[in-house]
Nucleic acid binder design. Structure first.
Length: 273
DNA sequence: ACGAGCGCCTGTCGGC
DNA sequence: TGCCGACAGGCGCTCG
């Protein structure tokens, strides 16, 4: 499910609450239920379970696609991968078949890690930097300039689609927002990174930022049964629109496989150089 | 340095 | 209706 905008949305909901759910900021973990051991990346499950109770959630944030909970002693990181989600519920809400980790909090609240496909992972660590060590820059950080971005593109000889999805190049893009950003920038997904002009690189960075910030503004993208609440899917230009007319020029959207991932683009708006 | 293939998992959908 | 393959917001690992 979640790319940067969905993780950012979940992070904000956990921090600020909304009409459906309370904030978990300031809540203390009282009891932990681990329903799928392999969801824990580190430490070993036994240590994970004894270290959590008694810790208070003092801060909530995001780095790339990682969600970060700063606890009183440790840092708890979630990576939601394909199907993960975090839910704030009353302690007596029913527990469905895809719950993997339950953190029982004070005020009769429960923070639930829900993950149908079991790809998601959780880390409890005092050193989040070692988990983040291979992550590239945050695309929305203004310290990343167009000149920097152009220089980074020049350093690689790679197809744009897999390069943009490489989290060590840029942290946060996934399949949806990469396809949308490339269409917005009028660049072919197979264009080669070190062949871009400075103008094209600047356009690409601006498009990435526009797609991500629009995604955040719409609370993310909700497709199928995974992740509810956002409505950026109503504004998608190419993703999962194979054969439908391009909203800019009317040409049918094409789908190809790049790096084992479905890739959607308009052959007219995004010509291969 | 790159890209391809595969594994990890469960669920949905379309074709026959 | 039932079965079977394709496919799904990700990523780490091998192997050329």
């Amino acid at each position: 499910m979640p790319e940067l905008p969905e993780v950012e949305t979940i992070s904000r909901f956990l921090k600020e609450g909304n009409s459906q759910q309370s904030s978990v900021l300031g809540r203390t973990i009282q009891r932990v239920d681990l329903l799928w051991e392999r969801s824990v990346a580190e430490p070993a499950a036994a240590e994970f379970l004894v270290r959590l109770p008694g810790q208070t959630i003092a801060g909530i944030g995001r780095r790339g696609k990682y969600l970060r909970l700063d606890l009183s002693e440790d840092v708890l990181l979630f990576h939601l991968r394909m199907s993960g989600d975090l839910l704030v519920e009353p302690v007596d809400a029913p527990i469905g078949p895809h719950y993997r980790l339950l953190l029982y909090l004070d005020q009769n609240l429960r923070l639930a890690f829900h993950d149908t496909r079991k790809f998601g992972r959780v880390w409890l660590t005092q050193d989040p930097q070692h988990v983040f060590q291979n992550l590239g820059p945050e695309p929305l950080n203004p310290e990343l300039t167009a000149a920097d971005f152009y220089a980074r593109l020049q350093r690689h000889h790679r197809q744009l689609k897999p390069l943009l999805m490489d989290q060590s190049f840029l942290a946060g893009l996934g399949n949806i927002y990469t396809d949308e950003a490339l269409h917005m920038a009028r660049l072919h997904p197979l264009a080669i990174s070190d062949k871009l002009t400075e103008e094209q690189a600047a356009r690409l960075l601006a498009a990435i930022r526009k797609a991500l910030s629009e995604g955040i503004r719409r609370n993310g993208t909700s497709i199928d049964w995974v992740y509810r609440g956002g409505d950026y899917q109503r504004y998608l230009q190419v993703y999962q629109r194979t054969g439908e007319p391009c909203k800019t020029c009317g040409t049918p959207i094409e789908r190809i496989i790049v790096g084992q991932r479905s890739t959607h683009f308009c052959p007219n708006c995004q010509p291969l150089p």
